[in-house]
């Protein structure tokens, strides 16, 4: 009995890591080239809205995920253009793109669906059991009996670790975020690296958003992201901009989220409002615990000007 409760809890945590892993790995990837994105909350909302609408009108969750990813690529492209080509302040542009995403996500939903008392519902992502592996006791049902995006999150984290630390491409990418001038002088294109990572980051964030209606609610509401975008920035700092630690951190944040939810259901004496504060307060507390350990990419948040003589 205790065992099955643990399995149930752990598999819920695995289900809840997806938005954190995707949004934070996207943040990390762009950060490795020095681009600090703060539009997560807005891009996730767009992903949630477009992903929902795509799935609703096509009848296919896969198409919903694809159009969401595409919209994220466009947002990433805009971010890269404003910051890398036009060299505008990354925070200010990030906020402007956040506003745009917030407005667009609500507008598209209202125009396509209208204001209804009973919003339309899409089916949720079904778990896909992996043959043989899902038969392993305890580990099987927790890890190998999940939906495809859970597998994608795990594989993405493994791939990014390999890519960034064991390939020369990854090394050049990290060089762009550490010392763009040096990278540039060795023939690595700073501009192209930033465009590519920014578009990938946008796609991952939009997928993170699209996951929410497809797994949690079945529909889109304007409060659906509920701070997860901001938490994933904190999570990226917590993970020290390394993909493997970000994955571990996602387990922790998803765990806090599920614990807060479960204690509301079970009733632990505290009013539910205070339980719902826990993920945000825990995030601040974690930032306090890890601020010393964190080393950010040296050029994080700064724009690179090839013709400038000073490097920072």
């Amino acid at each position: 009995m205790e065992n099955s409760q643990f399995v149930q809890f752990a598999s819920l945590v695995m289900l809840a890591i997806v938005p954190y892993v995707l949004a934070s790995q996207g943040t990390m990837l762009a950060g490795q080239t020095g681009l600090f994105i703060v539009s997560q909350e807005g891009i996730m909302l767009v992903g949630a809205s477009i992903g929902f609408l795509g799935a609703f009108f096509s009848g296919s969750l896969l198409i919903g995920l694809l159009v969401a990813a595409l919209s994220g690529v466009l947002f990433g492209l805009a971010l890269a253009y404003f910051t890398t080509t036009l060299k505008l302040d990354q925070f200010v542009i990030g906020l402007a793109i956040f506003f745009l995403g917030l407005g667009l996500s609500n507008l598209m939903f209202k125009l396509a669906i209208g204001v209804t008392l009973q919003p339309p519902i899409i089916p949720t992502l079904k778990p896909v059991a992996i043959p043989i592996l899902s038969q392993i006791p305890i580990l099987g049902p927790i890890v190998f009996h999940q939906n495809l995006l859970v597998y994608f999150s795990i594989l993405l984290s493994l791939f990014l670790t390999y890519f960034l630390y064991y390939t020369s491409w990854g090394l050049s990418l990290r060089a762009v975020g550490e010392n763009p001038k040096a990278a540039d002088s060795l023939g690595v294109s700073v501009v192209r690296s930033r465009y590519v990572t920014s578009m990938l980051a946008g796609a991952l964030m939009a997928l993170a958003g699209a996951y929410l209606p497809m797994v949690y609610t079945g529909s889109f509401t304007d409060g659906i992201v509920n701070g997860r975008g901001w938490i994933s920035i904190a999570l990226t700092f917590f993970g020290g901009w390394s993909p493997q630690l970000i994955f571990v951190g996602s387990l922790f944040f998803a765990g806090v989220e599920i614990l807060a939810l479960r204690s509301q259901v079970l009733g632990v004496g505290l009013p539910h409002q205070f339980l719902r504060m826990i993920p945000y307060l825990a995030t601040i507390f974690i930032m306090l615990l890890t601020y010393k350990r964190v080393r950010n990419p040296a050029f994080l948040g700064l724009n690179y000007d090839r013709e400038s003589r000073t490097s920072v």
Binding site: F91, A234, P271, F274, R276, M277, Y280, I284, M287, L288
Partner: peptide
């Protein structure tokens, strides 16, 4: 005290406030 990024902490406190006013 710790040079912790104020963008994140100020945003996160918003979500805490939403629950407090409801309570």
């Amino acid at each position: 005290r710790f040079r912790i990024n104020e963008i994140l902490t100020t945003v996160l406190m918003n979500f805490v406030a939403f629950e407090l006013i409801d309570y």
